[in-house]
Amino acid sequence: MNELQREYPEEIERILAKYPPENKRSAVMPLLYLAQRRQGYIPPQAIQEIAQILELSTTEVASVAGFYSLFHEQPEGRWRIQVCTDLPCALRGADEFLKRLCEALGVAVGGTTADGLFTVEEVKCLAACHRAPVFQLQGDGEIKYYESQSIDTVLALVEELRCKAESKKEGA
């Protein structure tokens, strides 16, 4: 039994039960997502463990993780603010929105704030072109969508999350 199996025994069993045993490789996506839950990224050890569980090669699992932009292989901020800058969004001011967000947080695109809380990323279509600027917030094992945003609304959200992180710290 590896670390992942020890940490999420029931979840793994539930995921594997969805697929016929001879095709258990199909469980690679949900398992990667599971492995990302705790640290916000998938460490190399977890890739190996998933390969072990599914009887795949490490390279096969790593290829899948590498293909999808929602799987992260590097530790970054606790929350990822992922802004769509595709053409329709750009027409509705996404570029300017992204630029100002970066300035406000003091990071470049792809960078992480000094406190380790936020990473700003540029992503492809989030399927809400008519409500741009739009971003998704990934973190703490969840994905949330924020549509029709302005720099004020996003900074308010950032403040809220900072408080949340702060109060957790004090609570502990």
């Binding site: 190399p44 190996q48 090669s57 390279t59 790593a62 590498g66 293909f67």
Partner: peptide
């Protein structure tokens, strides 16, 4: 060996 990333960033990788 496998593909990692996609589009222009795609590359051949090995983790064995």
């Amino acid at each position: 060996i496998g593909f990692s990333q996609r589009g222009r960033a795609l590359q051949i990788v090995t983790f064995s």
